[in-house]
């Protein structure tokens, strides 16, 4: 049997080859056939999950609830020291010095990365801003979010913190972070679907040992990671509850 593996479409394009190399490594380590298919967008991903065409996924926390509670996935591991955080930034020469100064109708550049967008929108709430009172411009990458700010197409940008910190110095010097999230408990995780139930222990064993040999460390480096940490079932449930409080909107 060939298992189906996919990666949440918000992965950085810099790591696309890294994920294929990881898949090759994982097949050897497990002695199983695994096919990696990258999805173009979240719509395609959600359709594949709905049709039970995914066995292994590097999942965005936004999808964790559906995967665990509706589709019976088991969280395996998360990146070591790697929680997802967001940055709200403006142009360096902007007159805006705090979130509370942003008026209704503010143009916000964002991406389709759902957890980062959610964290960003929560950080805009103290200004009384929500989806209905801002003008959202969805960009294909964080570089394009930066470009939207620099070209004056938007006043505010929502970035993944790592993506903001990895912008080139000339671009970063023209931007100014207004606020950074410090949530610490929202993270991507690798999850196994029900067809992989019998392999869960072995998957965790090989993944957790991955940083202990040079070949494994190289593969991790290709993903921008230093290693994996286990995700306990209750930890995953806690994150899912927390995500639900953040996505909750009264009737």
């Amino acid at each position: 049997m060939t298992y189906q593996f996919t990666v949440s479409p918000d992965f950085s394009p810099d790591y696309i080859s890294g994920w294929f190399i990881f898949n090759t490594w994982l097949q050897r380590a497990l002695g199983q056939s695994i096919h990696l298919e990258m999805m173009d967008d979240f719509q395609q991903l959600h359709q594949a999950i709905e049709e039970d065409r995914v066995d292994l996924i590097y999942a965005n926390p936004y999808d964790a609830s559906m995967l665990v509670r509706e589709k019976g996935f088991t969280p395996l591991v998360k990146p070591r020291g790697g929680s997802d955080e967001a940055v709200i930034a403006v142009r360096a020469d902007s007159g805006i010095d705090k979130v509370e100064s942003l008026p209704p109708g503010t143009r916000v550049a964002t991406t389709d990365d759902p957890d980062v967008h959610l964290m960003g929108m929560i950080m805009l709430e103290p200004a009384g801003l929500d989806q209905g009172s801002v003008e959202l411009k969805q960009c294909g990458s964080y570089v394009l979010v930066a470009k939207a700010l620099l070209q004056g197409a938007c006043e505010v940008g929502i970035f993944l913190d790592k993506a903001f910190d990895e912008l080139s110095r000339p671009i970063q010097s023209q931007l100014r972070p207004l606020v950074r999230s410090e949530i610490q408990v929202i993270h991507h995780s690798l999850m196994a679907g029900p067809r992989l139930d019998s392999e869960v222990e072995e998957l965790q064993r090989v993944l957790l040992a991955m940083d202990q040999d040079p070949r494994g460390r190289n593969v991790l480096q290709g993903l921008g990671l230093v290693g994996w940490e286990p995700v306990e079932e209750e930890e995953a449930e806690f994150m899912i509850d927390l995500m639900e409080t953040l996505t909750y909107s009264p009737g």
Binding site: M123, E125, G128, T245, L246, Y248
Partner: peptide, 22 residues
Amino acid sequence: TVIPNVRNGEIVGYTSVRRKPD
């Protein structure tokens, strides 16, 4: 925002998450 922690169909506790208000 307070959410019941439902495990195996039963409420086992509550999680409360506070954020900066408008």
